[in-house]
Design a protein around this nucleic acid. Structure first.
Lengths: 115, 115
DNA sequence: TTAAATTGCAACCAAATGGTTGCGCAAAAA
DNA sequence: TTTTTGCGCAACCATTTGGTTGCAATTTAA
């Protein structure tokens, strides 16, 4: 089975779990309490996240604290990089068009929203 | 079945296809020629990408030109935003530590790599 | 017109996915 | 000690996924 970050974030429940424990660690039970699904289902999601190297954990008595290692998500950010360049370029081009339109109407009828 | 961008980019072949046709449009045959797998397999991936709203297409005779609409990938970028804030903060903290170390050794023995 | 090329789609298949139930183990509470 | 709690794990199940083969439709070439 594939085990990478893209696989980890493919499932909406897992994305929610990631958001939930990105700043503070939580136990499986506490995490599961935030969702409709069962503890075991969450446990399997946690397992996937762990196998993708997204988790740090700490045993406290019989409890287990999980937290997200955010730096792993940089891999997604890095993959996105070339595309970001494209859409920023496109955005810049759109700004140019809007600017040109403003200049064309510089006698003063354009007063509405520019979004 | 789930049809969102996170699902679209979960598969490595699809990510490769996305990268391939992000700047110029290509036909299914031309795309498939870049991979080991069959034309039909690529066709199914294209279908998924299309159902996720990632594609623009144009019929040219009996051929069909596909291209990626990069702006759709901004959804991933937006989801990443809060995490980016975290790892940049962490990076800043690391810089602080390194700076403090430099100051502690300001008499001059630190000359090597700072990575 | 006939033949070849380009493509999408349906049917089928093995493997993966997301979920459930039930169990065992260790730690805390009774 | 006995019971309860928190957790991971294996077994099972329905659905999805990624792939294949075969076929029909349309456009171009002969």
């Amino acid at each position: 089975m594939r085990r990478d970050i893209f696989q980890a974030i493919a499932d909406p429940t897992r994305r929610a779990v990631i958001s939930l424990i990105m700043v503070q660690s939580m136990t499986p039970n506490a995490i599961a309490a935030q969702f409709q699904t069962s503890r075991q289902a969450i446990s399997k999601h946690i397992r996937v996240l762990n196998e993708c190297g997204l988790l740090t954990m700490k045993n406290v008595g019989r409890e287990r604290q999980y937290q997200i290692d955010v730096t792993k998500l940089r891999e997604v950010d890095e993959w996105l990089q070339p595309f970001r360049a494209l859409w920023e370029q496109r955005h810049a081009a759109l700004d140019q068009v809007l600017l040109a339109m403003q200049n064309d109407n510089s006698t003063g009828t354009v007063t509405g929203s520019k979004d």
